[in-house]
Design a protein around this nucleic acid. Sequence first.
DNA 1: GTCTATAGTCGGATAGAC
DNA 2: GTCTATCCGACTATAGAC
Lengths: 240, 240
Amino acid sequence: MTKRPLAVSVPVPRKTSKVRAVAHGGYPKGDETRERILNVALKAFGEASFLAVTTRQISEAASVSLPTLQYYFGNKEGLYLACAEAIVERYRRHTTAVAAEAAKTLSEDCDSATARVHLKGVIGALAGLLAGSKEAEHWAQFVARELRDPGPAFEILYSRLWRPGLELTARLIARIRGVDESDPAARIQALLLISSLLAFQSGRSISLRAMHWSAIGREELAMIVSGLDAQIDAISRHQT
Amino acid sequence: MTKRPLAVSVPVPRKTSKVRAVAHGGYPKGDETRERILNVALKAFGEASFLAVTTRQISEAASVSLPTLQYYFGNKEGLYLACAEAIVERYRRHTTAVAAEAAKTLSEDCDSATARVHLKGVIGALAGLLAGSKEAEHWAQFVARELRDPGPAFEILYSRLWRPGLELTARLIARIRGVDESDPAARIQALLLISSLLAFQSGRSISLRAMHWSAIGREELAMIVSGLDAQIDAISRHQT
DNA sequence: GTCTATAGTCGGATAGAC
DNA sequence: GTCTATCCGACTATAGAC
C-alpha cells in the first residue's frame, strides 16, 4: 500500500516524505481517503467516459475537496490511470485460479476434448464474474470503452488484460482444433468468442433491452453461457 | 433536399424563409455548404465522441465559421442528430436489398437450410460493407459508441438500425432452429452473432493489432466471414 | 448565407492557509 | 493531509454587421 508513484512520468504528487500521518489502527491515515476516492472514481469512470466525468463530481461524491484529489493522484489522468491499474489487479485476483489451471493443462499436451472443457471453464468463469457484481460491470465498461477509444490507460489495459486473455483463449482454441498456436483462424475465433461474451457486459444495457430482461440473474446467465458453449462446440467442428 | 426541420423539437435553425439563394446549377446555394459540414461531422464523430469533438474542429475542417454551423443545425446536438439520421439513411441504402430478400423468404415458410443461407448472406453483406469503405467504418464507430454510451442519438439508432437488424437476425435464427420467433435462445444467439461481427468493426483497431494485420483486405475478410459462418452453422446444431 | 466579435459557462489546476 | 479561494483556458452559443 501507499506506493503512490504511479507508472506515469508526468505530474506525480508532491510529498515524497517517507513519514506519513498515522491513524488509530496503525495504518497511514491518508490511505483510507485515497481508497475512497479510488472507489468513487472506479464507479464514475465505469459509468461514463474520461471526458464526461468531472473531477468535481468525483471529489464531491467522495466528500473531499478538489485539491485532495490532486494531492493523491496528481491530476485527472493520474486518477484515471490508477483506476486502470486497480481494475487490472482486481481482475487478476478473480481469474488467476482458472487461468492458471488452463495454462498448466496447456503446457502438458492435453487432447482436444480437455482443452474444450477448459475453454468453457474460462469463458464461464468470466461470464459469471462479469454478470455477478455491480463493480465488475463498471470494470468491464471501463475496459471496453478504453479499448474502443484508446485513451491514457490503453496500454495498461491492452497489454496486461486484453492481450493475455486473448492469448490464452487463442491457445486453447488452437489446441481444440489441433492446429498450431500461431494459426490465424484460431485467433479470429478467439476474437469472435470474446467479442460475443462482451455483448452482455459492456453492451449490457442494450442487450437487456433487446431481451426484455430487467437484469441478468441466474437463469439469464445460464442461457448466455449455453449460447457461448454452443459457439465453443462449433469451433472443434470448423475446419478451414 | 433542403428539408432542414430536424426530427427534434428543441433548437431549430431560424430562417424558415421559403426563398433560398440559388447558385449556378439551380440548386439552393446553402445545400452544398450543409453537405460539406455534415460529411466533416460524420468523419469527426466517427473518430471521436460527442464530447471529444469540438464544434471548432468541425467548422475549421469544413472551412466555415462557427455561426454557419449553428445556422444549419441549430446547435452541436442538432448536428450530431443530423449525423445519426444520415447514417441510418446510408446504411439502409446499402442493406435494403439483402434484407428485403431475406425478409421475403421468411414470410413464405422456408426450411432451415434456406434460412441459414440467407443469414450467411446478410452477415456476409454487412461484414463486407463495414470492411469496405473508410466511411462505413466511421458509421460503425458512431453507432457502436452511441449504443454503448447512450447519448442524444440513441433512440434514432436503436429503433431504426439496431432493433430491426437484430429482429431480422433473430427471426432467421429461429427459423433455422425451427423454434418460435419469440424464443429467447434465438435472440441470444442473434446478439452473440452480431456482437462477434462488431469485433472487427467498432473494435477494428484492437482487432487489427491482435491479428498483426495492417488492414482488412479481401483475404482477411474471407477469414472473418469463414469464422462467422462456422458460428452460424453451429446454431442449427445447438439445441437447448 | 456567412462573417467578426464577444458573452457566458464550466472544468482542471494552483496558491497558500490551517 | 485537507481545506477555501481563485485563476485561466476552452468551449458553446449569441449579437449583429455585411
